[in-house]
Structure formats: C-alpha cells, structure tokens
Design a protein around this nucleic acid. Structure first.
Length: 664
RNA sequence: GCCGGUGUGGCGCAGCUGGUAGCGCAGGCGAUUUGUAAUCGUCAGGUCGUCGGUUCGAGUCCGACCACCGGCUCCA
C-alpha cells in the first residue's frame, strides 16, 4: 500500500503507508536524513518518528532554520534539566522554554540552595555527557491523572497540569511558556529520554541528544515562579544553543560586539557622563562633551516643537502633596515617587511626572475652543524612585528629563491630533537616523482608574491613529498606564535590539480630576481630552540609544567635536588655525591639536575619540591651501583636497538635521 | 526589592593557600617638530568600595551596608 504526501516545494511523493517522517527524509536524500531533527506536517510541528498519512503536507525541519534552532534550544533545555536533576537529587524543575538565541530552565534546589557560577561548569560537563550518550527522546501521552502521578515529586509540574485540568485557564490564554509545557485539554504529553528522565512537554524534540552540542550555559539568575514577585523565587539557568559550533562562535562574537556598543562603556571612553556614587544610583552627571550632545538633541527638539505649534512652558521640580492627591499620583504611583519633604507645615514631593503642573497652566484661566488643540511642551525633569535592581546606565535612571507635552483638545479633534502626533514622532526619530519602528497599543490594565467605556473610547482613538499612520503595531493587552491607554513606539537599533522610546497616552481621568473645561462655540462648557506624549521618551534613554545605535560614532551634527585639525609641524599651526577659523564660520565644532607629539599618536587619539573628520595640514597644504582628510570609518586618507572643497562637503553634514516632515 | 556575580590609583588589569601593594594606558615635567592608529625619558598618583569583626598581622577570611554587572519583577 502506498500513500502520497506533498513536500515543501509542492511536489507529490509516493511513500509506503506507515512511513515515518524520518524515513521520508531518508528517501529524499541521505544528507537530509542526517540533518533532519523534526518536521512540520500540515502546519504542525511533529517528531521525526511521526507516521505520515495520505495527503499530508510535509516539511522537514533542519537545525539551520528558525524553527530548527528553536527545537534544538528546547531540547537542550531538557538536557539541562536532566543534568541538574542528576546532580541535585530532589531538585524541582519548573519551565524551560526556548527563547531568542537560546533557552533557560527554572529550578528550585533542595534546602533552598542556589547555583553558583562554578555549578554552571559542572552542569555543562554533565550535559555534554548526556549529549555524547545519544539518548533518545520519546513522546508519550497520559491522562491528567497519570500525569499528576508521574510528576508526584514535582510540585511545579503538577501545578501546570492542574491549572489546565481545573479549567482555571483556557489553553489559548496560557502564556507562551506554559503552552509549551504539554498540557492540552484532557491529556498531557511527556518526553522520556532513554535514560529515564521525563519532562512534561508538547514537543517536538530532536530524536536523540547527539543532535545537540553547540551550546553554552551563560549565567544563573533568579526568576519568580509565574513571574509573580510574591511567589517562590526559582533559580534560572540561561544558555545559548546553535546548529553548529561555528554558529555558536559567531553568536558569542556578536555578544562581544554588542558589549563594545554598550553606552555605559562608550560614555566612559568618550568622557560623556558618569554616575558618581556620592550622588546616588541612577543619577548621572554629564561631562562637557556629553552635555554638549544633550544640548544639541534638546535644541533640535525645541526647534521642531516650536515649528509644530507647541508652546514651551516651564514648571518646578517639587510640589505640595495636595497636587499629587488631586492628580491621583499619591494613590496610584506612590511607590514610584521620592519620599516627601516637610516644610512650613506642608508636604512636598519631587514630581514623578509633569502632567499636573501643565494642567495648572491650562487651568490658569478660562479656555476657548479657539485655543484648542493647546500643546504645552517642556523638557521636564522628573524624579522616580526606581528600585535599585532595575537601574541600567542612562536607559533607566532615577532622575530623567522628558521631552514632555500635554495636548488639550476638543473630543472631536482627538483623532486628527493623534494622527498628526504619530507623524511628528516618526519625523523626529528619523531625524536621528532611526527608521525601524514598531508600535504597541497598550490597553486597560487590571488596576486602572476610569470607566470601561471611557477606556474603550480612548483606546479606539489611538488605534485609529495607528491605522491612519500605517505604522505596524501589536496590541499589548492590559499593559496601559493606570490612567490611560497608550501607544508605545519601539525601535530597533543597528544591531537589532529593541528599545522603547516614544509614548502617547490618551487621558480621560486628569481632565475630570482637575475639572478642566473649555467654552465651545455654542457657548457651553465642555471637558477637553488630554494627550500625554514624549518622543525621545527621556533625553537620557534616547542618548543611550543613539550611542549604542552608532557605537559612539554619532552623525556629524551630533558629534561634540566635528573636525580635529592636526598641523604636521609647529610651523604649520598658523595655517591650521586659519583652516579652523574658516570652518568655525560654518559653526563647526573644531579643535586644533598642536604638533608637540608625533602625528601618528595624534591621529590615533582623534580616531579613538570618534571625531568625524581628522584633518592633517603640512607643507604642501600650506603652499596650496589644501587639507588632508581622514574621514571617520575610512582608513585611506585623502590628500591635497582644496579647503574650499572640504568646506562644501562639510557644510551639509553640519546641518545634518533633516527638516521635520510635519507641515499641516 | 529579590537571586547570582563583581568592587585594587582617572581607565584597563596583576596580586597563589593572610606577612603591610604592582603593570599598562591616561596625567605632570623635560626632550623630540614629526604626512597618517601609540616618540623617548622622568615624576607623581592607591588608608585595596565603606564600616565592623577574626588574627600577632587582612587587598586576601567573616558580617553588614553602598555601588556596579547579569537576570526576575517593574518601567521613559
């Protein structure tokens, strides 16, 4: 008896009935048979041992593919669990999914002991033994009851099984980690190795551990069970796994490259900022070059906001508790606020957000519909009491400056305003050379103020704006701020990392809490809607993103020093100065480095400072009014370029900042 | 905040099982005047994160705290 199956390329193939995926792979080619680790049959991932049926669409999965690597990583996570359970009898294991570039597994060790870095070495050695033993992975199905018995010593596995069995959650509402764990409706699937190690798992897995091996355990970390801070804290081991040693090596090199881009490291090397412990964690000081870059960013932001009809305002850093009581911050955001200060019988708090202050400006007098949308803008510095463990260079600090604005508009203006705003966001981010965006629409969280209907209204307006703008977005259920749904704009930097930058929030609460109103054209009083928005997110975080995106080599217009001029000998310094003053006419930031050190050393230093143009001038340049140009990123100097030509070349780069695209 | 790790001159590091700190770069000074990624010499600089403890003696051992790194949770 023969059946026919359809291969990935669409061709049909006759195979004997009862044929497995693995056998099919063998018929297609011996290399494929060797490489195959799993397959996709009619869209579902399955093991190689799976029997084929008439009409099945079959796609063989090999390691060097996204799906293949995911399976490798998942299987390697199982080997990790097996190794840990071997080495720590009585250990409990929880979940162990594949993640980007690798995998992890969560454990609870006996006597609440912890893994150390040395343990990783031992575990990895044990894992390599398991791999070399070539243990097979075999799938089996059990009833819920059998599953509970099988894992009677494993409370976390039991919890996973029970949670679904009790109907407490629907399968589709499980988060990705848990839905990988092999519980579906009334049965559980488990994978058993030939050694006897058994894990709850949906699969598929590689047929045998000897398909694995290009992996490395990276680190241990604490992780809460089910992400619940109040629940038990487990010991998580992270690892990375690849289809080949070469791919593994390349990944490790990529990590090293990423490390070199770390803004904290670059900040130190380029002398931009630091975090004095004397001041306190998460509170940076900006050195002259860093402050200059900041200033350029801020100046650009201010200019563009003016062009987009925002009005600059300025507000203080602290306010009485009553303000934050009215705004609700003391009710909802107290944990994020710095502790209060008592003064003359009043209690003052450093502001965690600028909105209440901007609202007071709105309220300072009656407002007419003619003024709306009213856009108040401030580079507002706020203080947030971030928990010590979350601080991360400039990307997560306790004192930050937001390019913050609050827009007050009539309800019927909202969607046009949001669409305009998204366009503005994109134009600003693009001006900084960032172009890979994705938005997230964050909806009502569990803990929220305001009625469901209001939330729906606001969320709808945001979604409408997203659709109009054409920017791709996903919905983040329940991720909104307590007072408002929001659009968060994420961007991808040069090496593919995601950062959250801009945020747009439609707030229906604060206008009510502060009883805001405007007089409409029909002479009735109406409540405005309010939009909170920050485009950089925070100046500090955006600064960090730029440094990492450009690996410190900022575009010319953002570079603190744009041109270094190096006279070859002392007697060229007069000419060097004249070149400098020529460039300064263009507002270029120029330095002349005197010839009291050999040229090679001075060039090296300027290059390491990532100066965009290193100019060398010597005898022939003095004679002919030329320069030697070393452009950043090029290792071939250009000699004898006419000074005038260099000026023409530099001028547009100094401008750098594209004019914003907003002109409605 | 929680789990693991780290903390030696401005920066990068060495300092073995406890016997009172070294190197390179950077910095000062002097010499060198140099055509494309490190000129030579010389000088100075550290109560080894802080506080407490063990010890005849602690950078080395113990404890607490602070800061940082990697995660978790949270978030601009």
């Amino acid at each position: 008896m023969e059946i026919s199956v359809v291969l990935a390329d669409g061709t049909e193939r006759k195979v004997p009935s009862g044929c497995t995926v693995s056998q099919l792979a063998g018929m297609i080619g011996s290399k494929l048979a060797k490489d195959a680790i799993a397959a996709k049959v009619n869209g579902d991932q399955v093991d190689l041992r799976t029997e084929l049926h008439q009409g099945d669409k079959v796609e063989i999965i090999t390691p060097a593919s996204e799906e293949g690597r995911e399976i490798l990583r998942h299987s390697t996570a199982h080997v990790l669990a097996q190794a840990v359970l071997d080495l720590w009898p009585g250990a409990h294991f929880a979940i162990g999914p594949a993640i980007a570039d690798g995998f992890y597994y969560d454990f609870e060790l006996p006597n609440s002991s912890h893994f150390t870095d040395e343990d990783l070495v031992k575990i990895e050695a044990r894992m390599r033994e398991i791999v070399s033993e070539g243990q097979s992975f075999t799938r089996a199905e059990y009833s819920i009851q059998e599953g509970l018995e099988l894992f009677s010593e494993q409370p976390f596995k039991q919890e996973i099984i029970k949670k679904v069995a009790d109907g407490e959650v629907q399968d589709e509402s499980l988060d990705a980690d848990e839905s990988d764990q092999g519980v579906q409706g009334s049965s559980v699937s488990v994978y058993r190795n030939s050694s006897g190690f058994t894990d709850l798992c949906r699969g598929p897995h590689v047929p045998s551990t000897d398909k694995l091996g290009s992996f490395k355990l990276m680190r241990v970390a604490g992780a809460y069970w089910r992400g619940n801070e109040k629940g038990p804290q487990l010991q998580r081991i992270y690892g990375t796994a690849w289809e080949s040693d070469k791919a593994l090596r390349e990944h490790l090199i990529r990590l090293e490259e990423a490390e070199k881009r770390d803004h904290r490291k670059i900040g130190l090397e380029l002398d931009l900022f630091h975090f004095p412990p004397e001041i306190g964690g998460g509170l940076p000081v900006f050195h002259p070059k860093g402050a200059l870059i900041r200033q350029i960013m801020e100046d650009y932001s201010k200019k563009e906001h003016r062009r987009a009809d925002y009005q600059a305002v300025w507000t203080p850093h602290i306010a009485k508790s009553t303000l934050f009581e009215t705004s609700g911050h003391l009710g909802w955001y107290k944990a994020g606020m710095y502790p209060p200060m008592e003064m003359e019988g009043a209690t003052y708090y450093p502001k965690p957000m600028n909105c209440p202050m901007h609202i007071l400006i709105y309220k300072s007098r009656g407002r007419s519909y003619k003024e709306l949308p009213l856009r108040l803008f401030e580079l507002g510095t706020v203080y947030r009491f971030e928990r010590s463990g979350v601080l991360h260079g400039l990307a997560r600090v306790r004192g930050l400056t937001q390019d913050d604005s609050h827009i007050f508009c009539a309800p019927n203006q909202l969607s046009a305003e949001l669409a305009r705003l998204l366009k503005f966001v994109i134009s600003i981010l693009r001006a900084f050379g960032l172009s890979d965006f994705e938005a997230e629409l964050a909806t009502r969280p569990e803990k929220a103020v305001g009625s469901e209907e209001e939330w729906n209204q606001a969320t709808l307006a945001l979604e409408q704006a997203l659709i109009t703008s054409g920017i791709s977005y996903t919905i983040a259920e329940g991720e909104g701020a307590f007072y408002a749904p929001k659009i968060d704009v994420h961007l991808k930097d040069a090496i593919g990392r995601r950062w959250q930058v801009s945020t747009l929030q439609v707030d229906l609460q604060l206008p009510q809490l502060f009883d805001l109103e405007f007089v409409d054209s029909d002479n009735t009083r109406k409540r405005p809607w309010m939009v909170h928005r920050a485009l950089f997110g925070s100046v500090e975080r955006f600064f960090a993103i730029l440094l990492e995106h450009y690996a410190g080599a900022l575009p010319v217009w953002l570079s603190p020093i744009q041109v270094s001029i190096l006279p070859v000998r002392d007697d060229h310094s007069q000419y060097a100065e004249s070149v400098a003053s020529e460039l300064k006419k263009l507002d270029a930031r120029v330095e002349v480095i005197p010839a009291d050190e050999p040229l090679g050393g001075r060039i090296r230093r300027a290059k390491m400072d990532k100066v965009p143009y290193v100019i060398v001038v010597g005898d022939s340049d003095v004679a002919n009014r030329t320069v030697g140009i070393n452009a950043r990123g090029s290792n071939a100097p250009e000699r004898d370029v006419a000074l005038g030509d260099f000026v023409l070349r530099l001028a547009p780069e100094l401008e750098g900042t594209p004019i914003g695209e907003l002109n409605d």
